[in-house]
Each structure stands twice: as C-alpha cells, then as structure tokens.
Nucleic acid binder design. Structure first.
Length: 907
RNA sequence: GGGCGAUUAGCUCAGCUGGCUAGAGCGCCUCCCUUACAAGGAGGAUGUCGGGGGUUCAAAUCCCUCAUCGCCUACCA
C-alpha cells in the first residue's frame, strides 16, 4: 500500500469528501452511535434566517454547538442536533419587496397578498436556506433529515395551537394601545425591535398664547410637528409658577385650536419650562396623561409618516419635511422662542433604520407577567443555568420589568393570526383550524384577521415545535427538555426568555438545562462586524479561499479549511469574552492543522515500515516493554484526557483546545516523537514499543481533537486503520462515532512528571550552551553531569540515553566530587551541575549574566519565602501543607543558589 | 440616568476556590532548509498585573475609590 499524503495539509482535498461519507453513513442522525445506558443530549440550533448568509458569528455559534454535540456523541449519548431555519418575517418580506421593485416598480400592494406570498415561497425554495449548505461546510453534524422551517405545516400548527391556548387562558388580548410604528415597514414593532441611538438634534421652545390674551406659556419639544396633535398643556400641580394658569386655555399656533392647561404630576418643574405639551396620539407618556384626563386622541401623522389634514397646510408632507418648513414658519411668526442643540436618544426601527413613530393602533398583545414569573422561577430554583452565570441577572432583570408583548405585525409574510372576525356581530373566533370550513360556523360571515405574528412568536416554540409538538411524539419524549442552548447575548430577551416562558406554558417543563452565552465576534479594533462597516471576515472565504475586503484592505486567502477556522474560534472562545479577530488570527489554526497532519504522516510512514496487527489497546500498550519516556508520555496522555473532558464539561472551549494543543505540540511532537525516532532506529522491542505507544497516544489525541477539528482527525484516523491491514474508509467505523477517551489508571503515574522535567531542563541547558557558542544543532557535544550525591547520580544514570539523544551529546554522570576541566562551561539545573565541553568561543559575559540573573531571581524568591517562614502569623494561620511546601521549596532553591554561586565563581 | 463587563508582555488573551520566580499564541532577537512538518525546529529577550486606598500571614485574584474603554438598558418633554 502506498501512502500519498501531501506534505502540507490541503483541507480542500478532504473536507467535502469526509462530510459526504459521514452523511451517507448516517453519522449525523439522531441517536447515531449511542451506547446503552447513556442519556439523551439535544441541542436545538438557533435557527438562522432563511435570508441569511453565514457570518463569523454563526461560525462561532455553530462551532461551539458542534463541539458539544460531537463530544457527547462520542461519549455514547443519544444525541440530537436539531437544525432548521427561521422565516424571518420582516427581513424576508423586505428581500422580496426589493426584488419586485427591481423588476419594475411593482409593489406588494399591486401584486396582492396571495400572489405576494406565493412569490416569497418561490424565493424561499430557490434561494432561501443557502446558509444550511454553509453550515455543512463548517462541519456541523446536524441531523439534516430532521431539518425544519418555522413555516412548515407542523410548526405552523404549533403556532396556532400556542396562540389558541394563550388566548383561552386570557393571556392574549386585543387592544388599542400606543405601539412603536415603523412608517417605512408600515407595521407595529415590539419594544425589542426598536434600537435607541444617540443622535444630535434640537430642542425647540414654543410659545402658546392664552386664549384671553393675558399672556402665554412656553413649552419645549424635540418634535415640533406633533404640536398639531396637542390636546393639552400640563404643569405640575405644585408648581407655584403656573398655579394661576391651571384650568385656563391656550390657543395653538397656526390652527388656532384651543386646548386646556391641566395639572398633572407627570410635568416635572425641573425639566424644560416646567410646562409640557401633551400629544396623546404620538407619545407614550402623553398617552398616559391623556388617559388620566380624558383628553381626545388626535392623530396628525399617517401610517406612512406623512402629516394628515390636522396639520393645516402641511398636510401630505413627510413628517421631517414638515418639521423643517414648520420651524421656519414658527421662527418667522415669533412663536419659536429659541432652540438648543442637544444630544438625545432616538428610537429607530432595528430593521429599516428610520425613527419610529409612536402610534395608537389596535394590536394583539401577550400578557407577560404570569409567564415571566414562572420563567423567573426556573433560574431562581436552579433548573436553568446560564454560563457564564452573570447572564442570569440580565435575564431576570428583563423578566422582572417585562411589558406586554405586541405580537401582531401589519405585514404579509408570516403566521397569520388564527382569529376570525364575525362581520355581523364583531365576535372574535380564535381557532387552530379554519372555522369557515367548520359546519358549526355555517352561515356566519367570518373573515380572518389580516395581521401576522411577530417572528419571535414561532421562534419561542422552536425547542418543541421541531420535535412534533403539540403531538406527543417519541422525539419530544426523548429529547425535551433539550440539554444546552448556545447563543449570543443579544437575543436573551428576544428568544431565550420567550422560549422558557412558552416551554413552561405548553409543556410544563423548561426548554433546556444550560444556556451558554458566547461572546460577540468583533474586528481587530473591537467594533462589531457588519456589512455596512466593511469590517466583516467571511468564514467561507477563510475556509474555501477567495479574496475579500476587510477594513479597506484586500485580502487573498488560499482557504485554510474548516478545522483551522474552528480551532481558532475555539481557541478564542474564552468564557463569554468578545473575540477580536483579524484575518491573520486563522494562521494559528492552520499551522496547528498542518502540524497534526505531518505528525500523522510520520506515524503512518513508520507504521508502514513496521506494521502492527491492529490499533493498540491499553493491554497492547501494557504488554510492551515500556521505558521511562514511554511511561511519561502515557501519563501525560491520561492527564490530557482528564483536562480536555473537564474543560468541555465546564464549557471552557478555549481551555479544551489549548490543552489538546499543548499536549500534542509539546509532549507528543517535540519530546516523544523525536525520541521515538531513536527507538525506531534501535529496532527490535524498543521500536515496537515506540510504535505502539505513539499510535496509542496519537489515536487518543485524535479522539480528543475530533469535536474541535473533525475533518483532519477523521482523515488521519481512517488512514491509520489501513496500517493494520485495513483500508481507509473500508470499515463502517468512523472516528466521529468512536468512544471519547477515558482516563486509564494503569497508564497513569504522576511520579514521572518531576524527573522528566529535570531531564528536559538538562537537555535545554545543553542546547542553550550550544546556541551560545553559535553552533548548529547538529554539532555533537560532550557533557558531564555532576550530582550533589552519589544517590542522585544513580537516579540519573539510567536516563543518560535520553539526554544524549535529545541533547545531541555524549553525557556522563560523574561523581559528586568531580573536578571540572577548564575547557568547559557549567550550567545549573537544580542541584545538578551540567558541564559542557566547549567547541567554540562563548560569550562568557553573556553566559554569566544569564546565570546571575537567575541567581538574583532565585534569591529574591527565597528571601520572600524565608520572610514568610519567619513570620509567626504565617506559621500559625496558613495551612500546614502550605507551610511545608514553602519549606521544601526554600530547601530546593537554596541548593540551586549554592550551586549557582559555585558555578559563577568558577566562570 | 441605571446596570453589566473590561483594563495583565509591542498585539490578542489565559491566569478558576487568594499561596511555586505571573503564562500562552502572534510579533521580536540569535542559530538551523536535520529524512513528519520552514505553515518547521532549537535557544533567547520582554511585565510599575490601569491609578490610589483597604482587608489578609499572603492580593493580578477579595473590598472601596478614581480613570479610561466597551456593551446593555431608560419616556427626559
């Protein structure tokens, strides 16, 4: 069999192929690879918008989910990663509306509701859901056979069912209320769809004259055009300045309409002039005041943002055009008393960007209080845990202050509200199934409500609607509540809290146990990535290659592969910290993937020369004649297994990959693999042991890497099967369904770490001296190691082979009373002196300086500890073990100090 | 206005329940294209842990305070 693995790792040559094999073999299916006695583990994907394309935030979010899912699957759990997409009402409607406009000035209105929705479906079938393919490129191991869309028939039924249940419980009501209105989208928006932006603006001061001509009152406003809708001026009842004016009337400018001056505590004497104009139809606070005083509602702005007939000659003008012209006119007429520039927060539509207009309209609402109380109990009583925990507070704070949720939208794409209005009686019929087809309602003129539901209404049901609810399906029984929700902090209110509320309401059980909130992906300056800012890094270009603009610079990328992108994202995913990315960051993942690849090639080449019968088991390993270095590596392998598992259990993604990286890079490659070359050369039993140990350790680390770097670990693992007489991909076995490693006590030996560290320090000392002589690594040196005692010498002697091999030297352990030759230079490693015969000139001053520096550092450390030990309080209060450790350390350090001093004296 | 978070090497970040001379990656300096890997190897340099105060035998870590920067939130007419 010939091995034709390229010298550098070419992700593109493998990833698509591997993914196809996994999928064909059913590896992604719910329950794939599950083992008896293991629990279920489910994650419902945060459904991306059908209109979406994969950005770095998705890449991070899905890498984390896939890592958890793959890990749990390897642990033998009955795993489901439920995928799907969201219909994204407003966003999708906007896409298609834009298309219509581009095709030639058609609007959705001219097309009509049914035709328009048809168009949206056509668009969805043809170009929607692109992102699903992109998630595959990332390596996401979702059960695609269970892919769902929020407007699927089943999920739509769940939406209607939920609506009807809430309605019957009195938790949904219809009412005329002040809502956020988007004049561009021509729909109501929920409070959460309004973003507040700080903007520069003007505060205008207007003069309203008293009707009786006895004077005037001044009010301030940032929206002068709303004065056409004023129905009162309010002053504080305790405001001495205005006592005499309460109950009198003022005349509005231009229209001359008369309105009363009323007393209401809402007017704050400290603010502005202390008198406030009341526009109940266009301001939420004024609406409240108006309600208290029975003031008429006078709407002066139309739903499209233009002024209506109440605005005199400004009727028909856009609200902002009107403001401009109006200000001019008022200035000219002397009504305008002045203006001040201010910076204030303006509520704007999240989707369309324009300032929202508060409007009084009839809408559907959900009464949130009772739902919120139950949702709060879940976290308070520990059934749902946020990671990191501080997000619990954010979640709780919102729920404690939650206001009723406006769920109706005046758009067409979405779940139509399952309520029918009786045209004759005005009665409302709420029903899961169309009542016009129900004989019970025969003869009645029922017309369905025109509005659709807020997109988040269906998203709130996602963890159970995707499992078949309201039917009691086996999947629902097995996977609900799901295990973990992985998401960003921006949708804790929108989505997380609402899923909890709806899960509890409908199923009496939380939708998930753990919520992992990851950081936001930012550019290198710390700004959130966005298309508009041109600071986005396209994950697909990082994976597949291509060129892109980033912060005004052109980047050409050869394509690093999904594993490299995933590794870098995981590495940076530290406890909810935001990620500051730049395209160069992905080098670390790419370099590591290449390192793994080449270590794999090395192992494969050597196994080709000395094949083993089968992948080594623990027993096979134990049956070998294991040397010190082998036993050390095996112990390190166990420690790494424990640490990686622990990190994943605690959602420490960065710690997980960094631990695996450190072991792989330092222990396995830098130390063991290099040592193995010598063992292979030696042949016989030593070579067999090295091959066995190396394969075993490599196999374990491939397993550890599989959740994070699934493609490369699978490819190498498959190739390794060939060396045992098999053929890559031949068996129906896959690394991704193989067991996650568990710590093997028989291979654990904590006593090896310290002696190995000492040997490594000796080797480093030798290499350092070689380096300081400006000699190439290939130059062989002669070394004498002088121990403090004969016993220490005996300890060391069996390990000279390791020092000789790794230090490229002849090493002799000499007697404690050894007199060093003059042509040597001495380094200190603890209580050992390492004498290296010089072959070239050495910068003695520099060498001395290094040692001196070390001496100073040690002396400082010892002095600190000795002071501590001299302190009676320390001895009395610190734990005994702590004190003993300090004593031991001082003893060790004093030995090294003495050693260093002697050495320095001899230099 | 309120809340939350951050501030550690030139850069990006670890450092968890206070306790070894505070670490890693990138970058930097020296040497090496050695038959797994130059996307590599060997060695090295680099810190008033944002400032100030406090608690403690002991503080990067806990508390207070100030500064700077983020994010969320709020109806400032």
């Amino acid at each position: 069999m010939t091995l034709e693995l390229s010298k550098t790792y070419d992700a593109k040559a493998h990833e698509a192929d591997v993914y196809r094999r996994w999928e064909a073999a059913g590896c992604f299916k719910a329950g794939a690879g599950k083992r008896p006695g293991k629990p279920a583990y489910a994650i419902a994907i945060p459904p991306p918008n059908v209109t979406g394309v994969l950005h770095m935030g998705h890449a991070l979010n899905n890498t984390l989910q896939d890592t958890l899912i793959r890990w749990k699957r390897m642990q033998g759990c009955d795993v489901l990663w439920q995928p799907g997409t969201d219909h994204a009402g407003i966003a999708t409607e906007a896409v298609v509306a834009k298309q219509l406009a581009a095709e030639g000035a058609t609007t959705r209105e001219t097309l009509g509701r049914e035709k328009f929705i048809e168009r949206v479906w056509q668009w969805k079938e043809k170009s929607g859901g692109l992102i699903v393919g992109q998630l595959r490129k990332l390596g996401s191991s979702c059960d695609w056979s269970r892919e769902r869309f929020t407007m699927d028939p089943g999920l739509s039924r769940a939406v209607r069912e939920n609506f009807v249940r809430l309605y019957k419980e009195g938790l949904i009501y219809r009412g005329t209320r002040m809502v956020n209105w988007s004049p561009v989208l021509k729909t109501a928006l929920s409070d959460d769809e309004v973003v507040h932006e700080d903007k520069n603006g003007w505060m205008w001061k207007l003069r309203y004259d008293l009707v009786d001509g006895s004077g005037s009152i001044a009010v301030e406003t940032t929206r002068p055009e709303t004065f056409f809708g004023d129905t009162a001026v309010a002053v504080n009842p305790d405001d001495a300045r205005y006592q005499a004016l309460i109950g009198r009337k003022v005349r509005l400018p231009i229209t001359g309409r008369e309105i009363p001056i009323i007393a209401d505590a809402y007017a704050d004497p400290e603010k502005g002039t202390g008198a406030v104009k009341i526009t109940p139809a266009h301001d939420p606070n004024d609406y409240e005041v108006g309600a208290r005083h029975n003031l008429p509602l006078m709407r002066v702005i139309e739903f499209d943002g233009t002024m209506n007939k109440h605005a005199a000659h400004f009727a028909g003008q856009d609200r902002f055009a009107c403001r401009k012209a109006l200000v001019h006119e008022l200035e000219a007429s002397g009504v305008m008393l002045g203006k001040t520039e201010i910076r204030h927060s303006v509520g704007t539509s999240e989707r369309s960007g324009e300032p929202i207009e508060p409007m009084v309209t009839e809408q559907w609402f959900i009464r949130m209080r009772p739902l919120a109380e139950r949702a709060l109990k879940e976290t308070n009583e520990g059934r749902i845990t946020f990671h990191p925990t501080q997000w619990t507070k954010v979640y709780s704070h919102w729920l404690e202050n939650v206001r009723d949720w406006c769920i109706s939208r005046q758009i067409w794409w979405g779940h139509r509200i399952p309520a029918w209005h009786d045209q004759d009686t005005g009665e409302i019929v709420v029903s899961v199934d169309d009542p016009t087809k129900d004989p019970t309602y025969a003869g009645r003129r029922l017309v369905q409500d025109a509005d659709v539901l807020d997109t988040w209404f269906s998203s709130a049901l996602w963890p159970f609607s995707t499992l078949g609810w309201p039917d009691r399906t086996p999947e629902l029984a097995r996977y609900y509540p799901t295990s973990t929700l992985v998401t960003g902090r921006d949708i804790i209110y929108f989505w997380v809290a609402r899923m909890v509320m709806m899960g509890l309401f409908n199923l009496d059980a939380r939708p998930f146990n753990d919520v992992y909130i990851h950081g936001t992906v930012n550019d290198e300056r710390g700004d959130k990535m966005s298309k508009a800012k041109g600071n986005g890094i396209d994950p697909l270009i990082m994976i597949d290659g291509g060129s892109q603009m980033y912060l005004g610079k052109q980047y050409d990328n050869p394509g690093y592969g999904a594993d490299a992108v995933r590794f870098t994202l995981l590495e940076m995913a530290t406890e909810g910290q935001d990620l500051k990315l730049n395209p160069g960051k992905f080098d670390s993942g790419r370099h590591f993937a290449n390192k793994v690849w080449n270590a794999g090639r090395f192992l494969l080449m050597n196994l080709a020369e000395r094949p083993l019968a089968k992948p080594p088991t623990v027993d096979d390993v134990l049956a070998c004649h294991l040397g010190f270095v082998e036993r050390w590596l095996l112990d390190r392998t166990q420690a790494t297994i424990a640490a990686c598992t622990d990190a994943l259990e605690r959602f420490r993604f960065s710690e997980y990959v960094v631990t695996a990286y450190r072991f792989f890079h330092d222990d396995l490659c830098d130390w063991y693999l290099e040592w193995a070359k010598r063992q292979f050369k030696a042949g016989g039993e030593e070579a067999r042991a090295a091959a066995t140990v190396l394969w075993y350790a490599f196999d374990r680390v491939l397993r550890l890497l599989q959740p994070g770097m699934p493609f490369i670990s699978e490819v190498l693992w498959q190739h390794l099967q060939t060396t045992a007489g098999g053929q890559a991909w031949a068996a129906k076995s896959f690394l991704m369904l193989s067991p996650w490693p568990e710590v093997e006590p028989r291979l654990t030996d904590a006593a090896l770490a310290a002696p190995m560290a000492e040997l490594q320090a000796v080797v480093t000392a030798v290499r350092n001296v070689r380096n300081q002589q400006q000699l190439a690594d290939g130059v062989h040196l002669t070394v004498s190691i002088q121990p403090k005692t004969a016993a220490r010498g005996n300890e060391l002697r069996p390990h000279t082979a390791f020092i000789e091999d790794r230090g490229n030297c002849d090493a002799t352990v000499v007697a404690p009373d050894f007199t060093k030759a003059s042509a040597t230079v001495t380094s200190v490693v603890g209580d050992l002196k390492v004498h290296v015969w010089l072959q070239n000139t050495i910068d003695l001053a520099a060498f001395k300086a290094t040692n001196l520096k070390r001496l100073t550092g040690l002396e400082k450390a010892v002095a600190g500890k000795q002071a501590r030990l001299a302190n009676a309080d320390y001895l009395a209060r610190a734990p005994a073990q702590q004190v003993q450790d300090t004593r031991d350390q001082v003893a060790k350090e004093l030995l090294e100090i003495a050693n260093l001093k002697e050495t320095l004296a001899g230099l």
